[in-house]
Design a protein around this nucleic acid. Structure first.
Length: 317
DNA sequence: CGACTTTGACCCGCGC
DNA sequence: GCGCGGGTCAAAGTCG
């Protein structure tokens, strides 16, 4: 795919989920980036402003998210802020279907993506997401039944958000409790991908965690679904506050609002690193153990493809 | 003892 | 039809 690096083309497997990855170029080791200048041209709609917390809690819809991202709800785009030269790129499934290649930016620190829920189906892998659960969980159908969903029937796709973070630990604390239910070797990568499920009853949120094979310091975390419950009390202290304050409240007049998802991260970084507070997605531990490592600038967008060719789509089909 | 992790097996969809 | 790869299951092991 070397020639295609510039094209950012990804052969999206039809069965794969598409979601968007937004690479942020905050540059946290320096000073907080100028949010408005970086993405101002992307047409962000302030009214669509929302937080990750909202996303996770289901209080926002994907169209809104997409809107907030400045993209069409049905498209998959990636925005890279390469030095004030934002470039939207479509991307494909980050982990899932993919080929296992780890889409990561060596120099980027936090990026995230999303996909719309229920917009497209997922052919098979998600089947168990709506699972008639298994007996152990309390009376579900047999595993087979769960899998035997009607053939043509499309499974509902859960919304997804993928984050690329620079961290030494694979499993970043995000305020929720997760149970690992699987681990798979990733093709073309020496690092395995771990699968986690929210331990809260009835919460079907899952997340995948994998490490970039190109840059082992980067961890790709993909959230799938939306939490239908608050952050566990024990963790909430740090986790929930941040967003509610820094992200959810309307921007004061004259202040700058982030225009893109990555900006959320950018904006939130200082909060995370300076406050004892966090949000549902980047709570306390991030704050303590990881975030200070996470924000790095993306020097060159092309690099993203070098690193994660499987994840990016060409802008035009 | 409950919660969580590990890990091999299994299932399914897709491409060839 | 077969093989591959991703995703999930579930038994066994580990930990506090």
């Amino acid at each position: 795919m070397s020639d295609e690096h510039r094209d950012l083309y990804y052969h999206a497997p039809s069965h794969e989920d598409h979601y968007d990855i937004i690479d942020e170029a905050g540059g946290y080791n320096q000073e907080p980036p100028s949010i408005s200048s970086t993405y101002g041209s992307q047409g962000f709609d302030p009214s669509s402003y929302m937080s990750f917390t909202e996303c996770l809690h289901g209080s926002m819809d994907y169209n809104s998210l997409a809107k907030a991202f400045g993209m069409s709800p049905s498209s998959s785009e990636v925005f890279s802020s390469k030095q004030g030269n934002p470039k939207p790129v479509e991307i494909g499934d980050l982990g899932g279907g993919g080929n296992g290649e780890n889409p990561v930016t060596p120099n980027s620190s936090v990026s995230f993506s999303s996909s719309e829920a229920g917009v497209e189906e997922d052919s098979g892998k998600t089947k168990k997401e709506i699972p008639p659960k298994r007996s152990e969980d309390g009376g579900e159908c047999s595993k087979k039944e769960g899998k035997t969903k009607k053939k043509g029937e499309k499974r509902q796709k859960e919304p997804r958000f993928a984050f690329m973070t620079k961290s030494e630990v694979d499993h970043l604390e995000d305020g929720y409790r997760w149970r690992k239910y699987g681990q798979k070797a990733v093709k073309n990568s020496p690092y395995p991908r771990s699968y986690y499920r929210c331990t809260t009853q009835k919460c079907t949120v899952k997340k995948r965690v994998e490490r970039s094979y190109q840059d082992p310091s980067i961890v790709i975390t993909t959230y799938e679904g939306q939490h239908n419950h608050p952050i566990p009390a024990t963790l909430r202290g740090n986790a929930a506050a941040m967003f509610s304050h820094s992200m959810l409240t309307p921007a004061p007049m004259g202040t700058t609002r982030p225009t893109f998802p990555q900006d959320f991260l950018v904006q939130m970084a200082p909060h995370i690193s300076n406050q004892v507070g966090a949000n549902s997605m980047y709570p306390q531990s991030l704050n303590n153990q990881h975030l200070h490592h996470q924000y790095h600038q993306v020097p060159d967008y092309g690099l993203l493809q070098d690193i994660a060719p499987s994840m990016f789509f060409k802008q035009e089909p």
